[in-house]
Design a binder for these strands. Structure first.
Length: 834
RNA sequence: GCCCGGGUGGUGGAAUGGUAGACACGGAGGACUCAAAAUCCUUUGCUCGCGAGGGCGUGCGGGUUCGAAUCCCGCCCCGGGUACCA
């Protein structure tokens, strides 16, 4: 079946593109600039099918845009810090650097073998001293600007990874994104990035991004802005002690029949400490009429203990179907709207980490409160009139306000505003905006990451390392042990530092940064990869940023893409990137996954079908073509036995074109009409393929080109003229050049005296020729197709009708011999209504 | 539960309100060959009919329209995200 030496041709062209530097670009390039980037790959070794798909899309875009006359920045690098290398070190004793470099070499070789082209001079590796230095410089600037801070907080600890995790790395069911272990809560002092400062801008500017809608929706939900009111509920019988609550429904305050605090709320600790049974404390707060039954101290303490023993999975995952649990605190609070006292409960359906950790409970209009009220037999009052036929429990719909004194009769919206006005006037509350988004925890108790460039001085406190001392590199002489303690913390001298302020002894921070920090700015470095003075310059970023086309997996919808957006905005405010650069990625494409039996094809599942197998048999071009042809780029593909047959089919098509492109064509006689038909087909295909390239419909580009090749074979069988046939072949080669680059380059160079195909301009369709083509007019009777007739492209309704009425097929279905009505979309369609 | 996608031949899929099933894979038949492979050609939604031709058909039920896979309403199923966020 093979008609050319695939291995030889593919390797030769890979070498040639590299030597010619076709895809090396300079800042002073005069062509229009664009930037195409695939997401920073983690180097896990040789490429898998997911990589092949991803990098084929990337490479295709680079080559297509280059042929369209653009100077395309196409860089590549490796997200080379991370846990697997360190875990391997614990297991095998091989240093993470050595391990990682070997994996990078494998992945790099795979990408080259795939035929992916890059400006390799710009290659980056997160663990290189150069990149570590710039990560640390950026951290230092963040620290100085108050965007990086250290705080004690309840954090997610993964026992499997032996480190803390960001909220974004913990799944809804409380398991670790990477290892799947159940994440534990620990109170630790950790470093955070103040991403919440940008919550509003991160949310609002999503609208303007040319990104897939599902990704935009996920980011909006993750940031989770909600608008409502915050106010204080004072403890009945005491002065100066209260509980702040947050609600999005201040209009329902008249329906508050109890209040709830989270088990971790400070007021709960005060109950357990016996504060409310302490005569001095009560006297201090003017509690002459205060009543408290000390029996509650034990029952509250017991409840808090019970909750503590539950991990997140127990507490959260069965959220909606588990009966509500809680305990009466023994305290009452006063509803400021009604003046009534209502009981204060503690329950774990209220989370300390959201809002104020306390709520007013309105069982009439909130299902969770309703469920709790039922368990504890608490009163339920409706403040919104439900429809007549409402038979649910809590009513959350719209309606007229009732049982709400001065809010009665108002709409919910108006009542909200008036309730906030009431709180503001009484100076016990105000309108408030809350976010689901938390600050980004970046500390990791691991070795193979970028060290946090901070020292702790007994005299001067927490200090950023002096810039001239950067990079701070992790020492090589460490022991990798599965103890859960970072090798850096155990190292004899790494901790020893000099305070940059006073010059005295200081203790060095031993935690490293989350690897998502590295991938939050690497794309900026590519634009100015040779800069020795700064991570990047404003001028270079003005030339190349933002990334015009970003390509990667949907699994990064929140984590990487949100962090990178935050970095861009923060760096912009710090003056390190252009002020007008607020978003890093103009257009995003998320490719589909490769599945096998319904689950993701991956090394850990042991269901990999290695690309090497195909590189060594049918070649990279055929494998690329298969991935492009199999379906829409955004769709997942379930790998079955049929895949091999389809890959064979791709190889067959390539050979079919190769044969016709390289064998001499000597027609016996000339059929000019056959030539004309082929010419029309060629120009139609150029038009369609170009349109489809622009809309990322690569599977239909392949289909259109296959049709063209079929037409070429037909034209040859019909003795079409040589020029028409040769033009059609050249056209097909150009249209396929971004998809199957090697064989196309080879065919072009054979046919055109060693010319470089990928430096050729993109073909354009002959519109004049296309305008002269006859169209097929569909004749419908009452919407059903009854005949098809060839007509001129500019036919008018009158002639179309007379042609139609001359057709027997039409007249059979038209009892009166003429229509009662005519709908014409000429020249494509004529619909006659009987 | 809520929020996104999606449901079309034996299979992957095509069709931006206008010929449903392009293009492939697989199947069937044929040519070439001593034979096989490779290659080339024909055919391939279901159904009635010898045929010309007709009927049905895009998860299900309604609707809008001259015309619906496509738009609207109500369901069913599959995939993903999210999960007591007040």
């Amino acid at each position: 079946m093979v008609s050319y030496d695939i291995q030889e041709v593919e390797l030769r062209w890979q070498k040639r593109w590299q030597e010619l530097g076709v895809y090396n670009v300079e800042q002073d390039d005069l062509r229009p600039k664009s930037y195409v980037l695939c997401m920073y790959p983690y180097p896990s070794g040789a490429a898998h099918q997911g990589h092949v798909k991803n990098y084929t899309f990337g490479d295709l875009n680079v080559r297509y845009r280059t042929m369209r006359g653009e100077a395309v920045l196409s860089p590549i690098g490796f997200d080379s810090f991370g846990l697997p290398a360190e875990n391997a070190a614990i297991k095998t004793g091989i240093h993470p650097r050595e391990f990682t470099e070997a994996r990078i070499d494998e992945l790099r070789a795979s990408l080259r073998r795939l035929g992916s082209v890059y400006d390799w001079r710009r290659e980056s590796k997160s663990h290189s001293p150069n990149m570590v230095k710039w990560s640390q410089v950026i951290f230092k600037r963040f620290f100085e600007a108050g965007l990086a801070y250290k705080a004690e907080a309840p954090v997610n600890w993964c026992p499997g990874c032996q480190t803390v995790l960001a909220n974004e790395q913990v799944h809804a069911d409380g398991t670790c994104d990477r290892s799947g272990d159940i994440v534990e809560k620990k109170n630790l002092s950790q470093w955070f990035f103040r991403i919440t400062k940008y919550a509003d801008e991160l949310l609002d500017s999503i609208d303007d991004l040319d990104w897939p809608e599902p990704v935009k929706v996920m980011q909006r939900n993750w940031i989770g802005r909600s608008v409502g009111a915050k106010f204080t509920l004072s403890i009945s019988g005491l002065n100066g002690i209260g509980v702040d609550v947050y609600t999005t429904r201040p209009d329902t305050a008249f329906g508050m029949t109890y209040a709830v605090v989270a088990p971790e709320h400070p007021i709960v600790a005060m109950v357990i400490d016996g504060k409310f049974a302490d005569a001095d404390f009560i006297a201090q707060h003017g509690g002459a009429n205060f009543e408290f039954d000390p029996a509650h101290i034990n029952s509250v303490a017991a409840f808090v203990e019970e909750v503590k023993t539950l991990n997140d999975v127990d507490r959260v995952s069965t959220a909606t179907d588990r009966p509500k649990r809680g305990v009466f605190t023994g305290l009452s609070v006063t509803n400021p709207f009604t003046g009534q006292e209502v009981p204060l409960y503690s329950a774990d359906y209220v989370l300390m980490t959201y809002g104020t950790g306390a709520i007013m409970a309105v069982p009439g209009e909130d299902q969770r409160d309703y469920d709790f009220a039922k368990v504890f037999s608490l009163p339920i009052v409706r403040t919104v009139k439900p429809p007549e036929d409402f038979d649910g429990e809590a009513y959350t719909g719209t309606g007229e306000k009732i049982n709400s004194d001065f809010l009665n009769g108002l709409s919910i919206e108006d009542a909200k505003a008036k309730a906030i006005e009431f709180l503001t006037n009484k100076e016990i509350g105000e309108s408030s905006v809350q976010y689901r988004l938390r600050d980004w925890l970046i500390s990791r108790q691991r070795y193979w990451g970028c060290p946090i460039p901070i020292v702790y001085c007994d005299n001067c406190g927490t200090q950023a390392e002096a810039e001239e001392n950067l990079p701070i590199l992790a020492p090589d002489d460490v022991e990798f042990l599965p103890t859960g303690e970072s090798p850096l913390a155990r190292h004899a001298t790494f901790k020893d530092a000099i305070c940059p302020k006073c010059g005295g002894y200081a203790r060095r921070e031993t935690d490293t940064m989350d690897t998502f920090v590295d991938s939050s700015w690497y794309f900026l470095r590519f634009a100015d990869a040779f800069n020795d003075d700064a991570p990047f310059s404003i001028e270079a970023l003005r030339e190349w940023m933002p990334v015009d086309q970003y390509i990667g997996g949907i699994e990064h919808a929140i984590l990487h893409l949100l962090y990178a957006r935050f970095f861009t905005k923060a760096l912009s405010d710090l003056g390190m990137v252009p002020t007008e650069l607020r978003e890093p990625f103009s257009r995003l494409f998320t490719q589909g996954m490769i599945l096998m039996n319904g689950s993701k094809m991956s090394k850990s599942k042991g269901n990999l079908i290695a690309p090497e197998k195909y590189f060594n048999s049918v070649g990279a071009d055929a494998l690329r073509l298969f991935h492009l042809f199999v379906g829409p780029p955004g769709d997942s593909f379930n790998w079955t036995d049929q895949a091999d047959e389809m890959i064979e089919g791709s190889a067959r098509f390539i050979n079919r074109l190769y044969r016709v492109a390289t064998e001499p064509y000597e027609p016996k006689g000339i059929d000019t009409e056959a030539g004309r038909v082929l010419r029309i087909e060629l120009n139609k295909t150029i038009k369609k393929a170009t349109f489809d390239y622009e809309r990322w419909s690569y599977n239909t580009v392949v289909a259109a080109t296959m049709s063209l090749v079929n037409a070429i074979y037909k034209a040859i069988a019909a003795n079409a003229d040589v020029e028409s046939v040769q033009d059609a072949i050249d056209g097909a080669i150009k249209l396929l050049a971004p998809m199957t680059p090697h064989v196309c380059a080879e065919m072009w160079s054979i046919r055109h005296d060693d010319e470089i195909l990928h430096r050729q301009p993109w073909p354009s369709a002959d519109e004049e020729l296309l305008a002269s083509v006859k169209e097929t007019m569909i004749i419908q009777i009452g919407g059903k197709v009854r005949d098809r007739i060839e007509v001129d492209g500019d036919i008018d309704e009158e002639s179309a009708l007379s042609i139609a009425l001359a057709s027997d097929k039409v007249l059979v279905h038209l009892p009166n011999g003429k229509p009662s009505r005519v709908v014409a979309k000429l020249p494509k369609l004529l619909n006659l209504i009987p």
